[in-house]
Design a protein around this nucleic acid. Sequence first.
DNA 1: GTTAGGG
DNA 2: CCCTAAC
Length: 600
Amino acid sequence: MVLQKRLDYGFNGYQVPATPRATRSARRRGSFRKKVEDNQMFAFDLLATVAGKLLLEGEKSPDSVNTSNGKEQCVIAEDHVKNEGHAEDKPLKIEPCDQGNSEKLVIGNGKNETESFASKVEVGSSGFREFNDRKLENETKRQIKVEPIKTGRAILNTGAGMFGSEDQVVWDGKPSVLVSSNSSAEVPACRDNIPCGSFPLCRGDVKVVSRDDDDNSSGCTQPSTSTKSFRPLPRIGDRRIRKLLASRYWKVTPKLKEDGFSNVDGEVKPIYRNKRNCYKRQRSQRNYPFKKRKLLYCSSVSNSEGGNGNERISDSPQMGINGDASGSGLKLHGGIGTSASVAGQHTSFQSRDSHVKLRIKSFRVPELFIEIPETATVGSLKRTVMEAVTAILGGGLRVGVLLRGKKVRDDSKTLQQTGISQDDQMDALGFTLEPNPSQAPQALCPGDNPFLLPYDTPQPLISVTDSKALVSVPAMSVEALAVVPVHRKSKRSEIVQRRIRRPFSVSEVEALVQAVEKLGTGRWRDVKLRAFDNAKHRTYVDLKDKWKTLVHTARISPQQRRGEPVPQELLDRVLTAHAYWSQQQAKQQLKHQSETCLLL
DNA sequence: GTTAGGG
DNA sequence: CCCTAAC
């Protein structure tokens, strides 16, 4: 089996708006966090490996966006968004990212690459019947389909799913813009085979809805828009934000004036309907240490229903992008390369060294809810959507394999043994996205979901009813339902995204230094208020931390410093101020001590 | 909620 | 940047 990773969706590169934190209580459960991250990494890895990011080179969509260096862009297309209060009746589109390094993943033994049969796989999702939710029972299913690449037939149906009334989003009267990616966007697994010419790689039917017109718009199966009159949002301070963050859902609290050092866009936060999925986000770098992977793999114990579809992958914790999976029978090869020539080729699978080539055409990004102030920039909208998409992809997913609609649970069998490599079986091969068993829900309980939207019913974030989205394959129509991030109700669900790293600019450093010079090193809240009041993403803890690193930076040799160089003059001031205020602090302490002594 | 410090 | 302890 040879799979090539062609696209880097640029999860590393987009800017994430200041990330809401969980409630304190949630944060106190930080002990869960690591584990969950691991689990989600695992899921992501699965997705990346099987569902979304691996593909064969070869066919190429005329609509795909290639940069000169062969990389692709991954941005929310700007032309469909207007920086106005009204949203255009146009979908957002998601495109491959030009930050990608076009690295290639090859899974297989590396031999006989040309002796392959390429097929494309569609991965969809289904209703979550496994989770015993009545509501979910009614969900229509999405399916996956595998078909030979050589046919070149577009199998994507980009029709958007239907919204149930339960899909309403909260509208609290504030003139924010709610952008709802209607049900799903096709995330390109590769850049070809785009059935809908207007949307090069994938499309999300994004609409802007308000509370008032939810009922109308939410049922639309086409990109639809309804606009409301928008008014500027009142400025809301950090404390307000904090409270909001602790509330059941996230809200955007834009500032109308952006000055100071807050040269960032207005705060934009995606609203998720599912807490579990929502707060996890990919680390800025996806290359987790293998050590960490190991942990997560260990924790990925299959449950009964889940089957063992993940074992194969679980078996290779040592397997890195460029590493060998000794003992697993799988091998990953990194590097740039192309197998375009093999796409569509087909040779006997009976031969001993035959490879099975699979192309996963795309998988769907489910319904998203995004709330964004009208004062936000297009750029922030892009980032927000990207974040939302990423959060979903980073959710607890794993991959299941279906053959003729039947789950292949025995991971130890070879493709040959299971018949997957049989020529005539290729059509029957499917993949499913399923909840990661390690995060399997105990039960669905609304009360246990602090981030659930008010009057929201527990339901999977991703399982949007959408039967038209993908071509259905009867043989798999029942079992092949991909079960995507589900509404898990474990406490671990309240995981928060890690904020994106935002290096301090020189001007920020300048401001920080100046404020500390004036206020000292023990009054970070005052420093924040004084110099960073408008920089919403800089908390006083951030400032304190930055000062800490500044002091450290100033003490090390210039050669050891990294990042944007801070002018030596500033560093000198850092040391001076630090020394001064340290001294002051010591004096204060002495004074305090002597006073205490006197009193005694 | 802040501050301080380790991770 | 995160997490906690301590206040």
